[in-house]
Design a protein around this nucleic acid. Structure first.
Length: 285
DNA sequence: CGTAGACCCTGCGCGC
DNA sequence: TGCGCGCAGGGTCTAC
């Protein structure tokens, strides 16, 4: 359900609530997620620690924890990171004390304030685990990841380099986490429309100018979506349970048959790599 | 090696 | 009203 912008909006809204708070206990209600929740490890790594900061890598939310009472300047080796991935249907929110247990609430982190940070995930494609912070980079979930599209080094030449020797449609390429992270099914279609590139165009047939245009389009569409609070089509919500607004700005995604905002031609839907893909047959080549 | 497809799972909206 | 079907914003594994 969430792509990079949604996770980034979540990071910011949760940060305001969580930084400085101590997790008193961990309740695992239903361990069945993409990988089974490790109750003992979560308790050991998370319970009794204080939230230092929230980061994001790709579509993973990283919650850095330190021993409570620690001023942060010492014992860095004891720091842990709680990693949360929302999959397709995950919602991570802070709810007040006494909020009833919800169907599909897999895990809850009870704070000293009485509130709890809980993950509700009906489809169970989400992921929650903890590890020593120092081991993040080498962890198998992160080791193979490509460029952050909002970070340094994401530009036309970098995309062109990554495409060298490869074939296949550019949309699939943009969504390959080994190339660049965070671009999911919505924003891949949106970025291609902005750049005027046909989703099925082979990566072997894209010139330098168009790679540059694509890199810019990816960055601007993600930044705009963050500014609008993300896209809520069905069930995305930030840490307070609020919806995003970017769905009104979507140019092509889920708009089959609607007139293209640039040329008026009806938006088309095709399937690429098993995923719905939307584009304008006239302005995307 | 890279790429295409199946698969994991529940819920919802649609057409009949 | 009820049912079956297709579809859903992610990632990983297998077969070619």
């Amino acid at each position: 359900m969430p792509e990079l912008p949604e996770v980034e909006v979540l990071r910011r809204s949760l940060g305001a609530r969580l930084i400085g708070e101590t997790v008193e206990r961990v309740r695992v209600h239903s361990p069945a997620l993409r990988e089974p929740l490790d109750r003992r490890r979560l308790r050991r790594d998370v319970a009794g620690r204080r939230v230092e900061r929230l980061r994001r890598r790709a579509k993973y939310l990283l919650i850095d924890l330190t021993a409570a009472g620690d001023d942060g300047a010492t014992s860095a080796s004891g720091d842990r990171t709680l990693v949360v991935h929302l999959g397709m249907s995950g919602q991570l929110t802070v709810v007040p004390a006494g909020t009833p247990h919800e169907r599909h609430e897999h895990v809850a982190f009870e704070l000293a304030t009485g509130e709890r940070l809980r993950l509700v995930d009906p489809r169970r494609f989400g992921l929650v685990f903890s590890l020593p912070s120092a081991r993040l980079e080498s962890d198998r979930h992160f080791a193979h990841l490509g460029l952050e599209p909002l970070g340094d080094g994401f530009d036309g030449p970098a995309l062109a380099r990554a495409a060298r020797g490869r074939r296949g449609p550019v949309k699939t390429f943009l969504m390959d986490a080994g190339v660049a992270v965070g671009v999911g099914n919505i924003y891949a279609s949106e970025a291609l429309w902005r750049a005027g590139v046909h989703p099925k165009r082979s990566v072997a047939r894209i010139a330098a100018v168009r790679w540059e245009r694509l890199a810019t389009a990816v960055r601007t569409v993600l930044e705009s979506a963050i500014a609008e609070g993300g896209t809520t089509l069905r069930d995305y919500a930030d840490g307070e349970g609020n919806s995003g607004y970017f769905q009104v700005s979507l140019a092509v995604y889920d708009r089959e048959g609607d007139p293209c905002g640039r040329c008026g031609a009806p938006i088309r839907r095709i399937v690429l790599g098993g995923r719905s893909t939307y584009y304008c047959p006239r302005c995307q080549r």
